[in-house]
């Protein structure tokens, strides 16, 4: 099976989010994913990068985020890496909108959205590197 791969590195600043969205949308479109799938991928990647900028790097724009797309006949896979504070899966709780509103809190919605939008979401951590891998399956596969 033939696979295509595309890379991008951005500085960890929210001003680069639109650039990341365009990068993933363009490749998903060129590889035949439909509008709904492109919208899902675009939002999931935006949420992932936003979380890294905010939580892993605490808005330090000198840090970097790596993005690698691999596309084949079955799926669109995005691997996003950073070297910041790792995401603590154990502390994560599915957010309750009602509670958040009552407490005037925002946020905590990104991970929940990523899991709803993508077919697979996996985190891993090695010494210094956090890796998030997300996949969107092709409907026809």
């Amino acid at each position: 099976m033939k696979a295509f791969s595309y890379h991008k590195i951005i500085k960890a600043s929210t001003e680069h989010l639109s650039e990341v969205r365009e990068f993933v949308s363009m490749h998903a479109g060129l590889h035949g994913f439909n509008d709904k799938e492109i919208a899902d991928i675009r939002l999931a990647v935006d949420e992932a990068c936003t979380n890294i900028i905010k939580h892993a790097y605490k808005y330090d724009p000198s840090k970097e985020i790596g993005i690698v797309i691999t596309v084949d006949d079955e799926k669109f896979m995005i691997v996003i890496t950073d070297q910041g504070e790792p995401f603590d899966k154990k502390k994560y709780q599915k957010p309750s909108l009602k509670k958040q509103i009552a407490q005037k809190k925002r946020g905590g919605m990104g991970v929940h959205l990523m899991r709803k939008l993508m077919d697979e979401v996996r985190y891993s951590k090695t010494d210094n590197l956090n890796t998030l891998c997300m996949c969107k399956n092709r409907i026809e596969s």
Partner: peptide
């Protein structure tokens, strides 16, 4: 054309006020 959860967060933070 597009919204991410950070946009929705603004509505969450101020609706009670």
């Amino acid at each position: 054309e597009y919204i991410a959860s950070a946009g929705l967060g603004v509505f969450m933070a101020y609706i009670e006020d």
